[in-house]
C-alpha cells in the first residue's frame, strides 16, 4: 500500500518533469527538471530493491553530471536569457513522431499486459556480492567490461581536457 503510493508519486514526478524538462524555455530550469527526474528514477531503483544502483544514480547522475550541466549552462548562457524558440514546423513534426511512437509502444505494452505480473521476493543484495561480481572473471562476472569502462573513462578525461583547453 505504501509502496504503491510512493510509486505513483515518483511516476507522476517522472512523467511531468520529463515533459517539462524538454519543453521549458530556459535552460537552467530544464536542467533542474532533469535533476528531479533523475532523483525520482533513483527512487524507483530503491523500490526495486537495488540500493546500490540508487546510490550510483544519485551520486553520478544527480551529483556529477548535473554539476557539469550547470557549469556548461553558466559558461554559455547569459543570465536570464531565453533560448530562441524553435520553428513550429520542427516542433509539430517532433510531437507527431514522439506521440505516435509512444502510442505504438504503449499499444504493444497493453496488448502484452499480464504476462509477467508476479514479483518474486529477493533477498537484499549485499555489496560483497556486487564487488565479487564486478571483479570476477568467471561466468556472470564483469571484470572485462569494468576494465573497458575504466579505460574509456580515462580516455574521456584526457579527451575532454584536450578539447576544452584554450589553444594558444
Amino acid at each position: 500500500m505504501e509502496v504503491h503510493i510512493v510509486f505513483y508519486i515518483l511516476s507522476l514526478i517522472i512523467a511531468v518533469f520529463s515533459v517539462m524538462a524538454v519543453t521549458s524555455g530556459r535552460l537552467i530550469r530544464s536542467a533542474t527538471y532533469l535533476l528531479f527526474v533523475l532523483l525520482a528514477t533513483a527512487g524507483l531503483y530503491l523500490i526495486l530493491g537495488y540500493q546500490y544502483l540508487f546510490a550510483v544514480q544519485t551520486a553520478v547522475y544527480a551529483g556529477g553530471i548535473m554539476v557539469l550541466f550547470i557549469f556548461a549552462i553558466l559558461l554559455t548562457q547569459r543570465p536570464g536569457g531565453r533560448i530562441t524558440p524553435e520553428s513550429v514546423k520542427q516542433r509539430v513534426f517532433a510531437i507527431i513522431l514522439s506521440v505516435a511512437g509512444a502510442f505504438f509502444s504503449g499499444f504493444i505494452i497493453i496488448s502484452n499486459i499480464g504476462r509477467v505480473s508476479h514479483l518474486v521476493d529477493m533477498k537484499e543484495i549485499d555489496s560483497r556480492h556486487i564487488g565479487m561480481t564486478l571483479m570476477g572473471t568467471g561466468k556472470f562476472q564483469y571484470l572485462m567490461p569494468f576494465e573497458v569502462i575504466s579505460v574509456l573513462l580515462l580516455a574521456c578525461i584526457v579527451g575532454a581536457i584536450m578539447i576544452a583547453r584554450k589553444r594558444s
Binding site: 520542427q90 513534426f93 517532433a94 513522431l97 505516435a100 511512437g101 505504438f104 504493444i108
Partner: peptide, 20 residues
C-alpha cells in the same frame, strides 16, 4: 543531425510496425 534522427526513428517505428 536532427533531421537524420527523425528519419531514423520514423523508419525504426515503421519497420517495427511492419514486423509486429
Amino acid at each position: 543531425v536532427q533531421q537524420y534522427a527523425f528519419v531514423f526513428l520514423l523508419s525504426t517505428l515503421l519497420i517495427a510496425a511492419l514486423i509486429i
